[in-house]
């Protein structure tokens, strides 16, 4: 139990890598889209809103298949990427990160948008009366005040990535060391009859990773709330 097998180590680090990269993709785009949905009004906004939520309501396998059609080596975008930049996404860990990012995207956008919607618009108006332009207002008022939502969205996206299965296996298959994340490895072991120990070991590793993420998010959230001055009587 103390020493991990190569498959376990690979799956652990790969899962972490895929989740972190998927957040790195999700975060900037998610905050931007959430800001647009929260503050802008334009014709066809409902379409963007619907598009964002699509991965939440579609079966993950369908999302994975769409990704394969778009980003596969013969896909519409994938072929162009391969020929222009020599980048292959399908059947690589990058593809797994993209699949995770797409699945996590609506969760990220929802959390950030909720937080943006709850910000007192009067504070932004006050900043403008003090001479701040839109960009300064966004970076000094809106973004800092929406941090709790950004953190919540990141944690949700991270958790979604850790558990991503359907879209990943459809889009990038189940290749040990390349695309075999913890859930995929666990699935593999459950398909082999007989000894359940390897599957249970992976289950425990998954639990530890999930708990670690929860604790980290809690610490982060407390710190941010303190920085935002949301705790009464606080002095620094």
């Amino acid at each position: 139990m103390l020493t991990l097998t190569q498959i376990e180590i690979d799956a652990f680090y790969l899962t972490l890598k895929v989740a972190l990269f998927s957040i790195a993709i999700c975060l900037p785009i998610g905050v931007t889209v959430a800001f647009i949905l929260s503050r802008a009004s334009f014709p066809g906004k409902w379409l963007l809103d619907g598009l964002v939520h699509l991965p939440l309501v579609m079966p993950p396998v369908v999302v994975g298949y769409i990704l394969l059609i778009l980003l596969g080596k013969r896909g519409i975008i994938g072929e162009w990427l391969f020929q222009t930049f020599d980048i292959t996404i399908a059947f690589s860990w990058k593809g797994a990160a993209i699949a995770s990012a797409v699945m996590a995207f609506p969760l990220m956008v929802r959390a950030v948008r909720l937080s943006l919607d709850s910000i007192d618009k009067g504070l932004e108006a006050a900043a403008r009366t003090l001479g701040a332009n839109n960009i300064k207002v966004f970076f000094t008022i809106t973004l800092p005040l929406s941090l709790p939502g950004v953190i919540a969205g990141t944690i949700l996206a991270f958790a979604r990535s850790l558990g991503e299965f359907g879209a990943t296996i459809t889009f990038v298959s189940n290749i040990p060391g390349e695309t075999q994340t913890l859930p995929l490895a666990l699935y593999n072991f459950t398909q082999i009859p007989g000894d359940q120990t390897p599957a249970i070991r992976l289950l425990i590793i998954s639990l530890i990773l999930a708990f670690g993420a929860l604790i980290a998010s809690d610490v982060l959230a407390r710190r941010v709330n303190k920085r935002l001055g949301l705790n009464a009587g606080e002095r620094d």
Binding site: L123, R128, T129, L130, L228
Partner: peptide, 20 residues
Amino acid sequence: ATEKRGLGYVFQEGRLFPHL
């Protein structure tokens, strides 16, 4: 634009930035 008018505005509820 508001930010270019150079007017000071004291709001009824203060509207201090809570994170600063």
